[in-house]
């Protein structure tokens, strides 16, 4: 075989492959930009204060989306407030209070399995357990508890990762100064892991905001402005889904989608900024 032609051919293969790889990265980004841009452009004309601050009339054909905005914010924050102590607590337990063994394996197995369960199954479970068995009915509370179960694995995983990056020396110094285990956790470990933990919670919130399947069977689809967490509510993605699928109002569907996208982008970008700032600070320290 002629060495020259082989290398010539393989260089050509290199060029073709690199072009294909570039193309796939370009496509992925182009799809994202297109989706965001399309929703924004279509939804923007509908967006005004009246749309944001008024209640819907005629099943959402006219009027605004205030109840859905309020419902989404309250439901999402409540689910984060429930999932945070459980998730961060689990992470603290796994990293600071137990060695790798059967027990920690069981917890890991539970967390990983939970992470793989589709949201519709969470919806079914939330409906059977919170709505019916615990008699909470279709309510913000039922929805928030269901979403909290769903985002729990995300909070556990990101908190554990954040806590593991805290250098052992920190703990050793605290112990040497006479600090107890819990004191070490609260005054040394958690403060230095905080940015990572917060990022994880924000990412979990980002997931919860856009969730539909788990919420539609647990929080209901009421168009009324909720007065308490025991009231049913129609979140933004559910409202959007109903408007779009039943063809009630395509303009208002676009407007709702635009608000939803803005919320999701804000949440994700702020998580990204926190990660970046922490990474930059870590580099400086070196």
């Amino acid at each position: 075989m002629n060495a020259y032609t082989t290398s010539h051919r393989s260089k050509k293969e290199d060029r073709i492959m690199l072009a294909l790889l570039r193309l796939s990265a370009f496509l992925a980004v182009a799809i994202l930009v297109f989706i965001v841009g399309y929703i924004m452009v279509q939804g923007f004309p509908v967006l005004n204060l009246g749309f944001l601050l008024s209640s819907p009339t005629k099943m959402g054909r006219e009027g605004g989306i205030l109840p859905s905005i309020v419902g989404t914010v309250v439901l999402t924050l409540l689910s984060a407030a429930i999932a945070t102590p459980l998730g961060v607590g689990t992470a603290i337990f796994l990293t600071e209070y137990t060695r790798e063994g059967t027990f920690s394996k069981v917890i890991r197995f539970g967390t990983e399995s939970l992470a793989g369960i589709p949201s519709i199954i969470f919806g079914l479970f939330g409906f059977l357990f919170f709505v019916i068995r615990l008699n909470m009915g279709w309510s913000i509370l039922s929805g928030a508890l269901t979403l909290a179960s769903m985002i729990l694995p995300t909070v556990v995983r990101t908190s554990e990762e954040a806590i593991r990056t805290v250098p052992d020396v920190y703990r050793e110094i605290s112990f040497a100064l006479g600090g107890s285990r819990w004191q070490t956790v609260t005054s040394v470990v958690l403060p230095s892991a905080l940015p990572g933990i917060v990022t994880g919670i924000i990412l979990a919130i980002g997931r919860a905001v856009g969730e539909t399947a788990a919420v539609i069977f647990t929080a209901g689809s009421s168009l009324r402005l909720p007065q308490s967490i025991f009231d049913p509510v129609r979140t933004l993605p559910v409202h959007f889904y109903i408007l779009a699928r039943e063809g009630i109002s395509i303009e208002n569907a676009y407007g709702t989608a635009a608000v939803l996208m803005i919320a999701v982008l804000l949440v994700n970008v702020s998580a990204y900024l926190i990660i970046n700032r922490v990474a930059a600070r870590r580099l400086e320290r070196r």
Binding site: P85, L86, G89, T90, I92, F93, L94, Y97, T98, V106, I107, F109, G110, T111, S113, L114, I117, I121, F122, L124, F125, L128, F129, R133, S149, L152, P153, V156, S180, R181, W182
Partner: peptide, 29 residues
């Protein structure tokens, strides 16, 4: 300290508990 440890152990079991409840309720129904 002991109380905190017990509490964290219970919290640590939360995801396993949720998983168990999901299996129990979906299968039972």
């Amino acid at each position: 300290e002991k109380l905190v440890e017990i509490l964290l152990t219970l919290i640590g079991l939360s995801s396993v508990t949720v998983l168990g409840l999901i299996i129990l309720f979906i299968f039972k129904e």
